[in-house]
Computed example of a mutant assay.
Amino acid sequence: MATRDLSDADLLRAMAGRDEGALRELYHRHALWISARLGRRCADSDAVSDVLQDTFIAAWDGASRFRGDGEVPAWLWGIAIHRLISRLRKRADFRLGPALVESDLQEISAEERVLLRLEHVDVGIAMARISPELRVVLQLTVLDGLSTKEAAVLLGIPRGTVKSRLQRARATMREELA
């Protein structure tokens, strides 16, 4: 069977067996949208390229650890956004070290600052506690700004399912943050 006929989960299993063709196919399917989403969060095209490459290297290295309890695109996005946050944090640490200069603050966008802090606030902790299928819908629609239709296409599920999961996710988040 050709790699293009395999599901994303099958590609990850093949990657766990070190099938480079499976990696190429997974990259072909997902690199464009991951790059676009990263680009909406970071204007540095070199950083986006590096993070994209790091994402697929991490997917290659971690394919055997994919548990299958969520969608592969969501798993890939989780890797990508964490890599971006790490890169931005390193850049901010470099710029905002002991010799803080006012011009350094202006170079870091508001969105970059939010991303750097998101992991450590109550929202980030609450997000980590909700189920993966609810979390991914919340991330795609609320954090990433996709429509329910776009999220449905990305996840390969009906739009109504996205809407109901989003409603449950919001209710769960309200409970977690109460």
Rank of each mutant, 00 (worst) to 15 (best):
M15A: 10
I57G: 04
C42D: 12
R83G: 08
A47T: 14
S35D: 12
K149N: 09
P132F: 01
W60A: 08
L88W: 02
A99N: 12
G17K: 14
K163R: 15
A22K: 10
P73F: 01
E20H: 11
G70E: 03
G78H: 02
L166I: 05
P73S: 04
R174T: 09
L166P: 01
G124E: 13
L38P: 10
L76Q: 05
R165Y: 12
L84D: 03
H30P: 09
V48I: 05
G17H: 11
V121K: 02
H28M: 03
D104S: 12
H82I: 02
A31F: 03
V162Q: 04
G97S: 15
T172P: 01
V136P: 00
R165L: 06
S49A: 14
E107F: 03
A169N: 08
A99G: 06
R40P: 00
W33H: 14
E119H: 15
A126R: 07
E102W: 04
A152E: 04
V114M: 06
K90F: 04
K163E: 13
L116F: 00
R168A: 13
D5W: 08
G68M: 06
T161W: 00
G156E: 07
R67N: 12
S45Y: 00
D46N: 07
H120K: 04
T3F: 03
